[in-house]
């Protein structure tokens, strides 16, 4: 398959590249906004787990516009990893489970709480659904916890959620802090994906609730009355599909020529990943330096009448030299 193949299979991947978004997920926030008008009256927004920064890009373009009229708009992006800089976005490389991070956010807002907190963070999926869903839930709860420190009463919290076996436990948890919780799926999110977004509006923590980061928020458990494991009573929040029906369909495969007269040209990704975990392994693989099973070496038959021939020795030396060169290249 050529490099254009992904452009055909994933229209939003292609559009993101063509429109200069760092990831296709930018469209998800745009479509969520179409439905919920998330950005109305927002001047302080926080993007948690921001890397590679596509949601920050959306916040920046939507809230700041051309940058002249909305000088008081502040956007803070938080991530553990380094992120390429974005104009108009204040970046914090920090951990969302730390009070210091919450304090830093508030400091950037000059002591004011945020109007909107968004989080598009997802773990590196392992492929085992129970583990992936658990870790995603913990990420969401950590985001919720820091949100309780920085969000103003009545504010909005938007986060990615995996709709798996225990999603009702998360819904019941969110309902404690937000009277209005809905599950939204933008049209740019694939039908086959378990990903969806919770849009939690009108932040109203329980009376007397003191935000606390010394202990993590833990997910709820099933109970016998209101949120049953196998019964009819479950906490399922209303669902809303977001985005215009006339928008591109993320599940549809499109021809490369989208409109007559518009020639297709391949566009490389806007922001390739910075130091992914597999970087070194890929380098080694590319240079054939991964360890391999040692293969059996031919034995010389001890023929009675002939002396065994000498083995050539050159091969092992060149191999070693290659290894040294490659490792040098790696370390620089």
């Amino acid at each position: 398959m050529g490099r254009s193949s992904k452009d055909k299979r994933d229209i939003y991947y292609r559009l993101a590249k063509e429109e200069g978004w760092r990831a296709r997920s930018a469209f998800k926030l745009l479509q969520l906004d179409e439905e919920y008008h998330l950005f109305q009256g927002v001047s302080r927004a926080v993007d948690l787990c921001a890397a590679p920064g596509s949601w920050s890009q959306v916040l920046s373009r939507k809230l700041k516009g051309d940058g002249t009229s909305n000088a008081d708009v502040k956007i803070v992006a938080v991530d553990l990893q380094a992120m390429a800089p974005l104009p108009g976005v204040i970046q914090i490389q920090g951990d969302i489970t730390k009070v210091s991070t919450a304090q830093e956010i508030i400091r950037h807002f000059e002591g004011q709480p945020a109007d909107l907190v968004v989080c598009d963070g997802a773990p590196d999926v392992t492929g085992l659904h129970d583990i992936d869903e658990y870790i995603q839930a913990q990420l969401l709860l950590a985001a919720l916890n820091i949100t309780t420190h920085v969000l103003k009463k009545g504010g909005t919290f938007v986060a990615k959620i995996f709709r798996g076996k225990d999603v009702t436990l998360l819904y019941s948890q969110l309902r404690i802090f937000f009277p209005d919780v809905t599950c939204a799926k933008p049209r740019s999110s694939r039908n086959s994906s378990i990903e969806a977004f919770v849009v939690c509006r009108n932040y109203s923590p329980p009376e007397g609730y003191v935000p606390n980061m010394s202990n993590p928020l833990l997910d709820h458990c099933y109970d016998v009355d209101f949120n049953q494991l196998g019964g009819p009573n479950r906490v399922i929040v209303p669902f809303l599909a977001c985005g215009d029906l006339s928008a591109y369909d993320s599940d549809r495969t499109y021809p490369l020529q989208l409109e007559p007269g518009k020639e297709y040209t391949y566009v490389p990704p806007t922001q390739p990943p910075i130091h992914p975990p597999y970087e070194e392994a890929c380098f080694l693989k590319k240079h054939n330096l991964l360890a391999k099973e040692s293969t059996a070496q031919p034995q010389q038959p001890a023929a009675p009448d002939e002396p065994p021939q000498l083995q050539e020795e050159g091969a092992s030396h060149t191999c070693e030299a290659e290894l040294v060169n490659a490792l040098e290249e790696l370390s620089t």
């Binding site: 709709r163 798996g164 076996k165 999603v167 009702t168 039908n191 378990i194 399922i236 209303p238």
Partner: peptide, 28 residues
């Protein structure tokens, strides 16, 4: 029936005489 499941309903089967079986990514 809204909110019949908490995720995609990936299987529905009508069973005679008046039953319906459904299954979803929410593992119910």
């Amino acid at each position: 029936r809204l909110c019949a499941h908490a995720a995609h309903v990936t299987g529905v089967r009508l069973l005679h005489p008046d039953y319906l079986l459904s299954v979803s990514v929410d593992q119910r």
